[in-house]
Simulated scan of single mutants.
Amino acid sequence: MADAKVIPFDDDRSRGGGTQRPVRRRSPAGGRRMAEPAAAGEAVVSPLPGSQAGDGAADGAGAPPVQSAAAPVVNRASAAQGVSGGAGAADAAGAARDGRKAAEARPTAQERHGAAPGGWDRRIAGGLAFLRRRITGEYEVDEFGYDAELTDQVLMSMLRPMYQKYFRIDVKGIENIPSEGGALVVANHSGTLPLDGLMLQVAVHDNHPAGRHLRLLAADLVFMLPVVNELARKAGHTLACAEDAERLLQRGEVVGVMPEGFKGIGKPFGERYKLQRFGRGGFVSTALKAGVPIVPCSIVGAEEIYPMIGNAKTLARLLGIPYFPITPTFPWLGPLGAVPLPTKWTIQFGEPIATDGYPPEAVEDPMLMFNLTDQVREQIQHTLYRLLVQRRSVFF
């Protein structure tokens, strides 16, 4: 493998040409054409009960269309007005009851994940529709290669058992991520392998009340590995450079960054939960330019999944990787040694730090960059210490 070239997040060189992909839609014939966004003000019409909506359901998000709670109210009120010339109190009460019944009929989060009665029926129907769209090529990816449908239907479903059953992750402070608009989530990095980033992505996807998606910034090495490169793109990851991060934030995305990089993920077990250097404040500059809040995030439990007791540096150089970890089980037990320990995790999202109150020239102030970077780092570090004191055991 060629030597991995790690590009720091705060590098200001332009890399836009190598990290962007055109927005495209696969046509049924197998070719590709540019995806056209909906025109401004274009009305989106939902099918009314009794209409032929089979094709629309197959081309949607995978679940059968659920009638809006507001539709029966409007239609019944209009019908009552056409018959009697005005909506009576009894008709209005009946319409309100119908609206409540329609709202209760919507699938809950448990049903979407198959945990409630009727959830498996919805998942089977959605899976069949998903396969149809994949076979015919009727799906979209954005300019970074993000495939939202594949991520929701497949990748998150593959990671969810590890998230729920293996690491049993508790999430706190998810409401600190805004419901709309851009935000930059800054987290500590650890664990020898970057499982903490994947679990962080599932935590935001499954717990945020607005259903936000986390777009992670990754190092060059991720996009140099076969298979991993394509999966990372499909899952919404992109190169950890300022240009890509700014574009995502200006589009209103929630972006995740782990400024410690390989220094954090490859540190020895004796330095666990001690934050490494956060670079020169590149993530702060990006947040200031986009005017989005910074949400500090502390992850406890990832440090112990692969206790790194040594580093075969010579072998790492030969393989072109930043480090070659030696743990109590790897490489002694072979592939079995690559199984992470089932530690108990906690992910805490802290109070957001606003950046929209600073003037445009603030990004040129090195002292401000240093102060904000240090503020974020200290908030994450103190939260880590507090969570460590509160947890009962590494595994429970």
Rank of each mutant, 00 (worst) to 15 (best):
Q348Y: 01
P117K: 09
F278Y: 05
R392I: 08
G88F: 02
E140L: 15
H213S: 11
V74G: 09
K313G: 12
A61W: 09
L249Q: 11
S285L: 15
Y323C: 10
L128F: 06
Q379D: 04
R247A: 15
V186A: 05
A95Q: 08
V227Q: 02
P226D: 01
I265H: 01
I169K: 00
P37A: 12
R377M: 00
M199C: 03
S68T: 11
K344C: 05
M224Q: 11
D55E: 15
D220V: 11
K263I: 07
D206Q: 12
L372K: 05
E304D: 03
E111A: 15
L214Q: 05
I353G: 00
E175N: 11
A35M: 09
L318P: 00
V66G: 15
I305P: 01
S285Q: 15
T108D: 14
F283M: 02
I124Y: 07
E253I: 06
A116N: 10
D12N: 08
E143D: 11
M369I: 12
R21G: 03
A61L: 10
V339E: 04
L216A: 09
T314N: 14
A61H: 11
M34T: 11
A39P: 05
A58Q: 15
A287Y: 00
L388M: 01
T286A: 09
A63G: 07
A90K: 06
S393R: 08
M308E: 13
P342N: 00
E42S: 14
A218H: 00
P322F: 14
Y273N: 05
G266K: 08
A183C: 08
M367S: 14
G82P: 08
R215M: 11
P37N: 14
P194E: 04
Y273K: 04
T238S: 01
